[in-house]
């Protein structure tokens, strides 16, 4: 029993729970009403609203957010027209765009990165382009995408593609270029043909670096989709946030923040697990 209490995971979980409880308590205290602040004519009080008459904050209380969250979670997939869809549907739109743009980026970045990594010539030739395009904010591409593609949905997919392609391209090229010479020499002495060498030596050796690039990319893609959907509108969690801001529903904005964080964490953990599966101890 003592050992269980002393173990690091148990203690850290307990501390996490305390931090969470403290956060909720501070939040609750800050948003709780202070009671009647002034006696006034009931008709006038009605006009002024609860903020003035009872000292209640306009910021939602933890209870209000919890209740609304429960409402969303119990009915995530309703569709009552273009401006009122369940949060599950909105998240699904965002995830769909991210995954589509991301898969296209994987399909292009990994083979191209492989070729660049194998050839010092191509590596040097592509380097200036990669260095210039990499730091460009993905949203800067949006007008160009809207102008050429002429479709807001495809434009946001393109923006996801363009932001996730660079980390994967760079990491793949780096991982392929830095495969240990002795492993390549093993392949050479065994007269392994090039294609078999690529799949049996270079790919497994570079896989941990490639997956690290994929993990960075999915994180960036999930960051960018919110901003992109705020711009193009229509559907998605980013649009939901902007729409609720226009509705002045701070409660819904906070719920969206929580869900964006949870989904992002899930995506990151999936790739972390994949990374552990392809890593090898030396």
């Amino acid at each position: 029993m003592n050992a269980v209490i002393k173990s690091l995971p148990v203690r850290s979980a307990a501390l996490s729970a305390i931090i969470f409880a403290a956060f909720i308590a501070v939040w609750w205290l800050a948003t709780a009403g202070t009671g009647a602040v002034a006696t006034m004519d009931p008709e006038y009080a009605k006009l002024m609203g609860a903020q003035v008459t009872t000292g209640t904050s306009a910021f939602p209380t933890p209870g209000a957010v919890g209740a609304k969250l429960w409402e969303h979670l119990t009915n995530p997939f309703y569709d009552k027209g273009p401006n009122d869809k369940g949060i599950g549907i909105q998240l699904a739109f965002s995830l769909g765009r991210v995954l589509l743009g991301y898969v296209i980026a994987v399909a292009i970045a990994i083979p191209v990165g492989f070729v660049i990594g194998m050839s010092p010539l191509l590596s040097r030739a592509f380097d200036p382009f990669i260095q210039v395009l990499k730091p460009v904010s993905p949203l800067a591409w949006m007008p160009l995408a809207l102008y050429t593609i002429k479709d807001s949905n495809l434009s946001s997919i393109f923006v996801i593609f363009i932001c996730s392609v660079w980390p994967m391209l760079i990491n793949t090229a780096f991982g392929v270029a830095s495969v240990r010479k002795e492993w390549l020499n093993v392949a050479r002495t065994l007269e392994v043909p090039p294609l078999r060498r690529a799949f049996t030596i270079i790919l497994p050796a570079a896989a941990p670096t490639i997956v690290t690039g994929m993990r960075i990319s999915i994180g960036i893609a999930w960051l960018v989709i919110v901003a992109a959907e705020m711009l193009v509108g229509g559907t998605g969690i980013g649009y939901f946030v902007w729409n609720e801001w226009n509705n002045l529903s701070i409660t819904n904005v906070m719920i969206a923040i929580l869900l964006i964080g949870l989904v992002g964490m899930a995506l990151d953990q999936m790739l972390a697990r994949f990374g552990r599966a392809v890593s090898f101890p030396e």
């Binding site: 020499n185 093993v186 050796a205 090898f280």
Partner: peptide, 9 residues
């Protein structure tokens, strides 16, 4: 090889 050069995976 001197450093055995085994494929660690």
């Amino acid at each position: 090889f001197q450093g055995h050069a085994l494929l660690p995976w």
